[in-house]
């Protein structure tokens, strides 16, 4: 890997990378608590939610023993494409001190989540990766890195499929076959040197967003 294949990749600025939008939902006026203590944004630093909270006795009242639990757990947040993106974007490129996100190797629109069958919890996740140049020999390693990260970070009900985006690589088919072959992936992970490279990638790039 001494020879750098693509010495001059195009880099995306951190503030252009997709990120989760701040929760902009306005609490409805009917829910008493949130109306009494409005989200004050900037002023939250000078004004705590209320001087009269927290009351350590508040939860002791038998009327609402589990209120805090039910409230904070009320809205489940399903795993979405952005979350997948946040998992794989900070992976470091094997030859640059940059993240796959900032090199546009992984892109939010190229992440697809689909239930295996309607209503089934089983989900098929497809991630298309775009090598920086069409003859990048490291595409397999990058794909492997993405795959390993997702397999470690996602619950087993996800079927992970990592492939090269169509038309972006000269030997895409071959790479896809390698990435899709469970036994070959397992064999690759037995390889000490390769595992070392992958571990470095998964630790994230310096200067990237708060790497995992």
């Amino acid at each position: 890997m001494s020879e750098i294949l693509n010495a001059n990749p195009t880099i995306r600025n951190a503030s252009d990378l997709p990120s989760r939008r701040p929760d902009s939902t306005i609490p409805t006026s009917s829910s008493g608590a949130s109306q009494r203590y409005p989200p004050l944004g900037l002023f939250a630093s000078t004004i705590p939610a209320s001087a009269y909270l927290p009351d350590p006795f508040a939860t002791a009242t038998p009327s609402s023993p589990t209120s805090s639990i039910s409230e904070e757990d009320s809205a489940p947040e399903p795993i979405d494409a952005q979350e997948i993106y946040d998992l794989i974007a900070p992976i470091a490129d094997p030859e640059h001190p940059l993240t796959l996100g900032s090199l546009s190797v992984v892109n939010l629109p190229d992440i697809f989540l689909e239930p295996l069958s309607p209503g089934s919890p089983l989900t098929v996740l497809t991630v298309l990766i775009t090598p920086t140049i069409t003859h990048c020999s490291l595409a397999t390693v990058i794909g492997l890195g993405v795959r390993v990260r997702l397999e470690q970070a996602l619950p087993p009900r996800f079927r992970v499929d990592v492939r090269i985006k169509e038309g972006t690589h000269s030997t895409a088919e071959q790479v896809n076959r390698q990435l899709g072959d469970k036994e070959r992936v397992a064999a690759a992970l037995e390889n000490g040197t390769l595992m070392g490279v992958l571990r470095k990638m998964l630790q994230g790039a310096e200067g990237g967003e708060t790497a995992l």
Partner: peptide, 10 residues
């Protein structure tokens, strides 16, 4: 922890 990976909270 495999099960916790599917926690409802992000």
């Amino acid at each position: 922890l495999m099960a916790v990976l599917d926690d409802p909270k992000r």
